[in-house]
Structure formats: structure tokens, C-alpha cells
Simulated scan of single mutants.
Amino acid sequence: MNYLTTKELSLIEDELRSEQLLAKTFNWCASQCEDEEIRSLLEQLAKTHQLNIADLSQYFNRSQMIQ
């Protein structure tokens, strides 16, 4: 099994925070948008970042990976 170092986990945590900020920003922008096509695009972008959050969060749920 491959183990992640503390530094690697820290970088993943930083990326997780970035993804959360992007998802929230795109959702907020979508809520302010009156154009349906642009709103749909913004919602899709937010969804993509939310999926990235779920993927990155898996690393924090595996405490045995910390070296």
C-alpha cells in the first residue's frame, strides 16, 4: 500500500479548501444570474468542484495512509 506523507496530505487539504471555495463561488454566481444558460453552466461548474471535494475527502478518511 502506498502511504502519503504529512506534506502530501497538507497539499491535498489546501486543494480541498480551494475546491470548496470554487464550488461556493460558482453556486453564488449561479444564484445571482438571470440568464438560464449561464446559470446552468455555473451550476455545472459548481457540481464539478463538489465532485472534486468528494474525491479529495477520501484521503482524509483513510487514517492508515498517514506516514
Rank of each mutant, 00 (worst) to 15 (best):
L9R: 12
A23C: 06
Y3V: 01
C29P: 05
S40W: 00
A46S: 14
Q64W: 08
S18K: 07
N52C: 11
N27T: 13
F60Q: 11
Y59H: 09
L45W: 08
E34L: 09
K7C: 02
T5W: 01
Y3F: 03
N2M: 06
Q50C: 01
Q20C: 04
L42G: 06
Q32S: 12
E43R: 05
L16F: 01
S40E: 10
E13S: 15
S63N: 06
Q20K: 15
D55I: 00
E37S: 01
E37P: 00
C29Q: 15
K7Q: 15
Y59A: 13
S31G: 03
L41Q: 09
E15F: 00
Q64M: 05
Q20T: 04
L45D: 11
N52W: 04
T5L: 07
S18P: 00
L22C: 01
S40Q: 07
C33D: 13
I38M: 14
K7I: 09
Y59R: 02
S63M: 02
W28D: 07
I66Q: 08
L41S: 12
L9K: 08
L51V: 07
S10G: 15
S10H: 13
M65R: 00
Y3G: 00
Q50N: 05
K24I: 08
N27K: 11
L21A: 15
R17D: 15
I66E: 13
A54Y: 00
T25G: 06
R62T: 14
S10F: 14
D55R: 00
E43N: 06
E34C: 07
F26I: 02
L21V: 12
Q64R: 04
S40A: 12
C33I: 05
S18M: 02
D55P: 00
R39W: 02
I38T: 12
L21K: 12
L9Y: 03
H49D: 15
A46K: 06
T25E: 15
I66W: 03
I38S: 10
Q67P: 12
E36S: 13
R62Y: 12
N27L: 15
C29F: 14
Q58K: 07
M1G: 14
I12Q: 05
L9G: 05
D55E: 04
Q67I: 05
R39N: 05
S63R: 04
L11E: 15
E19N: 10
T48R: 03
E19R: 05
T25L: 13
D35N: 14
Q50Y: 03
H49A: 11
Q44S: 12
Y59T: 01
C33K: 11
E43H: 00
C33N: 12
Q58A: 10
L51T: 10
L4M: 08
